[in-house]
């Protein structure tokens, strides 16, 4: 073993402590979804299933969930395409603008959401003359999701080198055949990791969405925001959040299975 027993125990201890810290508020959310007090006062004096019943019949929540999933899927798809293209382009090339391109891709996530939000809002309305709606949310989300795919793919490409593709080409496969049969399979788990992170980023985004969504479209975070301020609805929001927490295990586990390694989650460097 490389670390002393003491250090390993310390690391284990801090990990357990952090996990407790991370899960206490989440446990509270689940508990509050049963709290009879409408502003979820602590400690709960009375428990109720009323909020779960109300949530089960909330069309608004279901519709918002649907919108969120659609937005996230489309934004993820766009960022997969654009991010992969950019990563492939920058591979083994060192033209002078290379650093500028990397920086440009990072920029939408590195600049505060409110800046991206009002910039896109202003551009959509005044420059493009679009009405804010579903598509504007997708475009905005894809903009800041590209970076997760780009980084994952770039890291994978760097690790792999280009020998297999060279071999494929030398054996007579065309550029597109090589991509389909050689490059893409090698990238698959990196794409999955980047795509999953992009999906998660889009799914819980609220600030940019606030400025790029029309009044009609409600993503789940916007629905939650609105309903936290409707009386009797705030506890319903806790139910929705509790369900989300539990349901989120599925895509994450699935992704882990598919990528076949724990590192797949974070980019398999």
């Amino acid at each position: 073993m490389t670390f002393s027993r003491g250090l390993r125990a310390t690391l284990l201890g801090s990990t357990v402590l952090v996990l407790v810290l991370v899960y206490t508020p989440l446990a509270l959310v689940v508990l509050n979804s049963f709290n009879a007090n409408r502003s979820f006062a602590w400690p709960p004096r009375e428990l109720t299933l009323e909020w779960w019943r109300a949530a089960a019949s909330s069309e608004g929540a279901r519709a918002a969930l649907g919108t969120s999933v659609e937005v996230a899927l489309l934004a993820t798809f766009l960022s997969l395409v654009l991010g992969t293209m950019a990563a492939l382009a920058l591979r083994r090339t060192s033209f002078f603008g290379r650093d500028a391109v990397s920086l440009l891709i990072i920029l939408p996530i590195a600049l505060p959401g409110i800046v991206t939000g009002i910039a896109l809002n202003n551009a959509f309305r005044t420059i493009f003359g679009w009405e804010l709606g579903f598509l504007t949310i997708v475009v905005a989300h894809a903009t800041f999701c590209i970076v997760t795919v780009f980084n994952n793919v770039q890291a994978r490409l760097r690790r792999l080198g280009g020998n297999l593709e060279e071999a494929s080409m030398d054996l007579g496969a065309g550029t597109f055949t090589t991509f389909r049969l050689v490059t893409f399979p090698m990238l698959r788990s990196a794409l999955l990791a980047g795509g999953l992170l992009a999906f998660a980023l889009s799914f819980d985004e609220i600030i940019v969405t606030t400025f790029t969504a029309g009044a009609q479209e409600q993503t789940l975070p916007i629905w939650i925001f609105n309903n936290l301020f409707r009386p009797n609805q705030a506890p319903v929001v806790n139910v929705v959040a509790a369900v989300l927490i539990l349901a989120s295990i599925v895509p994450i586990m699935l992704a882990q299975r598919l990528s076949g390694s724990s590192a797949g989650m974070t980019g398999a460097r």
Binding site: W42, L228, S248
Partner: peptide
């Protein structure tokens, strides 16, 4: 398992988590 455990909170809404902290930080809170 740990990666899953640490990623899961990302899915609980940002707002809900912030309000959970509001409840915890308030007078008489957790």
């Amino acid at each position: 398992a740990l990666v899953v455990a640490l990623l899961m909170p990302l899915w609980a809404s940002y707002l809900v988590k912030a309000y959970a902290w509001r409840g915890m930080l308030g007078t008489g809170g957790l």
